[in-house]
């Protein structure tokens, strides 16, 4: 049997040309997107906060200066929003892992709950931070 080289479409380039964008697929890719953002931006920011607090008042005031700048505020707000989404959608994934709520209707209901919860949780946390 000879192997014929085929050029199959490979992820993540399925949404769009091959599949119509749907809430389920978009929320799935967003889960990964927010996860990457949290790994690359969120985790270092949290480390910075902890290390600055551990090091002393001058290091902490440098962090505060960053957090007070508009770019810092934007990064912190994005981190909080991504964390809220990734946390809530992660709970949705964990429910699926137990074999529950796997039908289409539940997938959409859960999706809306996650989106509404993300907005609320982000607002609460940003309210506490400011």
């Amino acid at each position: 049997m000879t192997m014929k080289e085929t050029r199959r479409p490979i992820s993540p380039f399925m949404i769009g040309p091959y599949y119509k964008p749907q809430m389920t697929s978009l929320m799935s890719i967003s889960h990964r997107g927010t996860g990457v953002f949290l790994s690359v931006v969120g985790a270092p920011l949290m480390l910075w906060w902890i290390i600055a607090t551990a090091t002393g008042p001058d290091a902490f005031s440098r962090f505060e200066a960053f957090a007070g700048h508009w770019a810092g505020m934007l990064l912190l707000a994005l981190t909080v929003a991504c964390l809220a989404y990734h946390l809530l959608n992660g709970i949705r994934h964990l429910v699926w892992d137990t074999g529950r709520a796997l039908d289409l209707r539940s997938a959409y209901t859960g999706g809306w709950l996650v989106l509404i919860g993300t907005v609320l949780l982000t607002a609460v946390v940003l309210g506490v931070l400011s």
């Binding site: 992820s11 993540p12 990964r32 996860g35 990457v36 949290l38 790994s39 985790a43 949290m46 480390l47 902890i50």
Partner: peptide, 19 residues
């Protein structure tokens, strides 16, 4: 901190493998 970085490492690995 350790759990977050471990979770991030595992997640990034999947993203790298897939994309």
């Amino acid at each position: 901190l350790v759990a977050a970085l471990y979770h991030a490492m595992l997640g990034l690995q999947v993203v790298i493998e897939d994309y």
